[in-house]
Nucleic acid binder design. Structure first.
Lengths: 215, 215
DNA sequence: CATATGAACTCAACTGTTCAGTTCAGCCAA
DNA sequence: TTGGCTGAACTGAACAGTTGAGTTCATATG
């Protein structure tokens, strides 16, 4: 008499293992071949039957959102936001900011899977309008509060003069991470040397403009 | 005895009209619904028979590349690069650069179709690998030479001190146009007021850093 | 007993083609 | 100017062939 009009996903130790394998395979294949890959292929890559995939996720869309939301919970920020929070207590602001920027940009560049996923979401925004918004919250705006907090703290200390916090945040993003995001849209990426030159001179430019001692 | 193994597309005044209607409709629908739209729908939107579409373009891929390459030849730069070239002769560099930036950003923001198309190409890069490269050449790098030329001229005049031209170009892009590109990836866009504040303070920041009189 | 499997199946959507007939512009003859 | 001729381009509808999502079911496994 088990009348499940909506069958609930399997649970248990074995099921969890399969589930992870499926998500991992799906992520890899979505990334490599786009949303167009067949469910057969994904199932095969996960070493799993297609039926199992459907027992777990119910639909391709659900699987896709599972991939995305699982990627949403990824690091990319622990070391980074830690470095950001230490800014307020740093003696040498410039060096500290450069270090934080290096950690930040490094996180963005090494997890370029995440950027690629972002492009995927953007690409499939017609099919998943809600995902686009979910992504906005956790995207760069994920540490938006961290960046905002750090800048505000520095402003309160009088170590920076920031009349327009909103603009300043965007400018910091723009100088440091946007280039990598834009380039990756074409599948291209910035060379290591240029990346570091952008970080150093970007920080100097930012500090030069927002330092209180100028005039 | 006309043995055309490959039928050549129709020519003539009427054909040209239809052709334009098809490309326009295709562009609009690709933009709105992604590459997934059916040829039926495109034909209907163009007020044209599906067969006509195939007589003209032969395949969906060909139609897509036609849409893209036609978008590649679009303005987005005439007024902008003109303003950029006048920079070298301007008396008040700051005002001139702000004006040029306004024209530039305005072009980017009004033709946001072009940015959306860019996302489409990025999305469909698996299907059209060659398009991705064609797009790179005409993307922001389209006026890359114009920007590079303007900055180099100003440096030669001694009005700017630019030790790293490559970085400076990217930074100018980053401060002025990248925010709009990144935001539009989510379907979001920067408000008017913030846009102008970003332009003005971005230019000031850039000039502050690259002006020779500092130190 | 819950979960996983594989193979065969349904169903819908989409690309691309065929074909018999229609529109339309230009042209020539009266 | 009129009227009809010609041929290229267009139409509508039906059709073929494929692909891929999602289901069913009998069976296996731990």
């Amino acid at each position: 008499m088990s009348v499940d009009s909506v069958r609930q996903p399997p649970s248990g130790p074995r099921a969890e293992l399969k589930r992870q394998a499926i998500v991992r395979a799906a992520r890899e294949l979505f990334l490599r071949d786009g949303f167009g890959v067949g469910m057969d292929v994904i199932a095969a890559e996960a070493g799993v039957s297609k039926v199992t995939v459907y027992n777990h996720f119910g639909s391709k869309e659900a699987l896709f959102t599972a991939v995305i939301t699982s990627a949403l919970d990824e690091p990319l920020g622990h070391a980074t936001s830690a470095a950001l929070e230490e800014l307020a207590e740093a003696e040498d602001l410039r060096t500290a900011l450069i270090d934080a920027a290096r950690a930040w940009v490094h996180a963005v560049r090494t997890n370029e899977d995440v950027i690629a996923l972002r492009n995927l979401v953007a690409a499939e925004q017609h099919r998943f309008p809600e995902l686009g918004h979910a992504w906005q919250g956790h995207g760069p705006e994920g540490h938006h509060p961290a960046v905002a907090g750090a800048l505000r703290a520095l402003a309160d200390q009088g170590r920076l003069a920031i009349p327009d916090l909103e603009a300043a945040i965007i400018q910091l993003y723009a100088l440091l991470v946007f280039p990598h995001m834009v380039f990756s849209t074409y599948g291209a990426h910035v060379e290591d040397g240029l990346t570091d030159r952008l970080i150093v001179s970007g920080v100097d430019m930012f500090l030069g403009y927002y330092s209180p001692q100028r005039q």
